[in-house]
Simulated assay, not measured.
Amino acid sequence: GGIAMADSGALSFADSAVSNSIAADSGGGARFESSTSIATLVRSNVSENRATSASAFYYSGSASTPGAVRDSQFVSNVAGDGITITAVSQLSWFPCQLGEWMPTRGVFEGDVAGCNACPERYYGNATNLETARCSGTCPLGHFCELGSALPVPCPNGTRMPLFGASSADDCLDCPRGQYQSESGQPSCTTCPAGTHSADTGSSECEVCKSGGYCQVEDGSMVRQACPAGSYNPETKSTSIGSCLLCPAGTSGSDIEATTNATCVPCRAGSFASGEGKQACQFCPQGYHQSEAGATSCVRCAAGKFCPEGSSREMDAQCAAGTYANVTNDDGIPDCFDCPAGSSCGGGAAP
């Protein structure tokens, strides 16, 4: 090979190039074997060497003191088994910076041009780490990209409930009705009573507006609109009980109403018998109502005719011995013979 040393003292390369050497066994570029000494390579290039194994470097040095490789590279070397470096003894790589790692023993395949970046999902907050786990798995609330020296906190408005996130895309938005005001958190918090968050990814909650109320559903604070027939002028409401019902005799067709001005009195010919009506009902056939805002209708007097929705009584227009209780499309009532056993003076009913 290029350089072979066995128990003959320390080996040191500095600003050197070892190339185009061939070894029949191992250590095409250099082979170092010593039980008492070490090898040191500094700013050196070991390239285009050949061997059956360990085409660039075979190292077996002192068991008490590690060898050292600093700012050096091993490229374009060819071995029958694909192994570029064999380190039987400890071989330290400098400088392995934060976010990097390199094993100190074993075999190295392919080009070796420096320390490895800590893989995704792990971080390295110390120098000269020796395993691919670096300093450990990325913690909750954080993500660790390739070569991370420190875990990166997920931003406000997000969460990360799992270990080992690898990018900012793994951070999960807080769902609607929850928020997170701090970074690097594993979970989000339900908005306080009387508030809500309308969008995902919220870092704060907003006051529940008038016209509705906010209550917890499946762990999230959700705003609901007051239904038609009701209104709510207040903010920070926490239940549907905050929606005030339109009074009897009125109706409200708007949802999310904020004022009782949306509660409109029933017009003549209609009524609302109770509170919270979305629409007024027409007076049924045989009844009428001449007043607005009524809660009931008045029965049509004998001898009068009142079709559905009547605001007043009308003359029946039927002769004695007959009666009227319905109307045709033209508005003129039909007249019927008085039933046996009844007396009909031309009124609206026998």
Results as ranks from 00 to 15, higher is better:
residue 23 A to S: 14
residue 314 M to R: 15
residue 250 T to E: 06
residue 52 T to F: 09
residue 77 N to G: 05
residue 249 G to R: 01
residue 251 S to K: 05
residue 156 N to A: 15
residue 166 S to W: 10
residue 208 C to D: 07
residue 256 E to G: 13
residue 63 A to N: 11
residue 152 V to C: 10
residue 260 N to A: 11
residue 234 E to H: 14
residue 268 A to E: 05
residue 43 R to L: 08
residue 287 Y to I: 06
residue 47 S to W: 10
residue 70 R to M: 14
residue 21 S to F: 07
residue 218 D to N: 14
residue 340 A to P: 11
residue 120 E to D: 12
residue 51 A to R: 02
residue 304 K to F: 13
residue 93 W to P: 06
residue 69 V to D: 02
residue 2 G to P: 03
residue 28 G to A: 06
residue 341 G to C: 01
residue 168 A to P: 08
residue 247 P to I: 07
residue 137 T to I: 15
residue 163 F to P: 05
residue 253 S to L: 07
residue 145 E to S: 12
residue 137 T to C: 05
residue 101 W to C: 02
residue 167 S to A: 09
residue 171 C to D: 03
residue 303 G to A: 02
residue 183 S to H: 02
residue 73 Q to W: 13
residue 33 E to H: 09
residue 285 Q to L: 14
residue 126 A to I: 09
residue 51 A to Q: 03
residue 70 R to L: 13
residue 235 T to Y: 01
residue 254 D to F: 14
residue 140 L to M: 00
residue 247 P to K: 04
residue 188 C to V: 05
residue 121 R to D: 08
residue 231 Y to F: 15
residue 155 P to Y: 07
residue 338 C to Y: 02
residue 209 K to S: 13
residue 139 P to Q: 01
residue 68 A to S: 13
residue 289 Q to P: 04
residue 169 D to M: 13
residue 270 S to Q: 07
residue 285 Q to R: 15
residue 98 L to W: 02
residue 214 C to K: 00
residue 348 A to G: 15
residue 49 N to I: 05
residue 69 V to H: 03
residue 281 Q to L: 15
residue 112 V to R: 04
residue 50 R to F: 15
residue 98 L to A: 02
residue 187 S to Y: 08
residue 116 N to F: 12
residue 298 V to M: 08
residue 255 I to W: 13
